[in-house]
Nucleic acid binder design. Sequence first.
DNA 1: CTATGTCAACTAACATGTTAGTCAACCAGA
DNA 2: TCTGGTTGACTAACATGTTAGTTGACATAG
Lengths: 236, 236
Amino acid sequence: MTNTDIEVTNLREIGTFEGSLAQRVYLSMQEAILSLQFLPGSVVRKGLICEKLGVSRSPVSEAIARLSNEGLVDVVPQSATRVSYFSMDDIREGTFLREALELASVAKVAWDRTEDQMAQINRNMRLQSLLVEDGDFPGFYQSDEEFHAMLMHFTGYPRLKTVARMVSLQVTRARMLLLPTPGRATETLDEHQAIVDAVRDQDPDAAQKAMRHHLGQLMPRIEALAEKRPELFQSR
Amino acid sequence: MTNTDIEVTNLREIGTFEGSLAQRVYLSMQEAILSLQFLPGSVVRKGLICEKLGVSRSPVSEAIARLSNEGLVDVVPQSATRVSYFSMDDIREGTFLREALELASVAKVAWDRTEDQMAQINRNMRLQSLLVEDGDFPGFYQSDEEFHAMLMHFTGYPRLKTVARMVSLQVTRARMLLLPTPGRATETLDEHQAIVDAVRDQDPDAAQKAMRHHLGQLMPRIEALAEKRPELFQSR
DNA sequence: CTATGTCAACTAACATGTTAGTCAACCAGA
DNA sequence: TCTGGTTGACTAACATGTTAGTTGACATAG
């Protein structure tokens, strides 16, 4: 049993976040987990986190409670809490839920989009293009996220983005391990364009089909990953 | 300003629930809010709840935190927390999210259902029939919930039911005000049967169509309700 | 050497004390 | 009567002390 325990040093100071202490601690810890600076299986020690961030156990407890119901940490009552392992079951479920929400969103947006919204989407697409040409993959990753967030925003349902993010947190974490390649970025761009074309044409069915195809590219790549890095996945 | 404040007496004792204290307090409070024994706009007083349930402020605080991110209470930092008003925007959004999940579920289940699962569904349908004949509306309401929960269960995704419940809590609360009528129960039964038929035939498109029609019946009835009981809705 | 029972150390969960922010009632002035 | 500022009571948020349950190491028996 590789007794990986704790790595608290690389945890962003809470001064850079805003909100209540609990909120800031939550964001800091979530970032560390999603960016894999807290490795799956390692034990989260309240005391060390309190010390590192300079707060008491109350806000840390609340943060851990939130991370727990998001499935990012596993709490063993009266004992310990550790960073959850990757689980193909969880990832598959997250993908399913995410797809359900994305499909509903894109259909609605295709139906009742405005010209102003189309202009914003096109602006984002041009940005994506530029970033791919420049080979700026982190930047492209971010504009990709923005593209999807934008579509959800245009539904007019404010919680949608939050829910979608929550259900697919495990997927987000897994994506961190997928190295972006020029080829994949170009493909992604084309897939996005197909979605945009269908939204422009106000064709909900075509938009859903394009979105389904786009999202369908992800799972196979994650499955390949599970073979390469089995130590990050559940052993049971 | 109708200074409705608090009604703590009708709050189920936590002895009847299981889990941690925080979990039990959460369930007890959620039940009171969903069943409208805590009215929208009334102030939630930690002290009184602690006294009534015989616990300290810690588990109550955690319970309130959860209710807050579900949108069932509004917390004003350093001041007060009150039961949230009904909001047509929230209800519309909850309906949208719920539909997205139900449609994805029913399509998947129609695709890969087993014969054993069909048998379970049919058993539930016969139960619904009996309860309608007997005029047992509370019983029918419950078997209705079970019908939808069963479909989600058959997807094989365990969190799905939880997420669906969470996103549509506001809708659930609003439904409490809709008096069940014999006519509506019979209609519901027919709509369910149409869904079941499509699942039996392994026809995902038809299943989605039937589900969409079924879920579409709810919003108009809630909108009518908003006219009748405006005091429960946001005034802003 | 292996299996089992005991025990000590550590933890989350819970209780309670403290702080600081918010809101509404009240009062003074117009 | 109405407006604006002041104040005090009340609250959530945070800090800290306490309790009880779990885990894993170690010793002991087979």
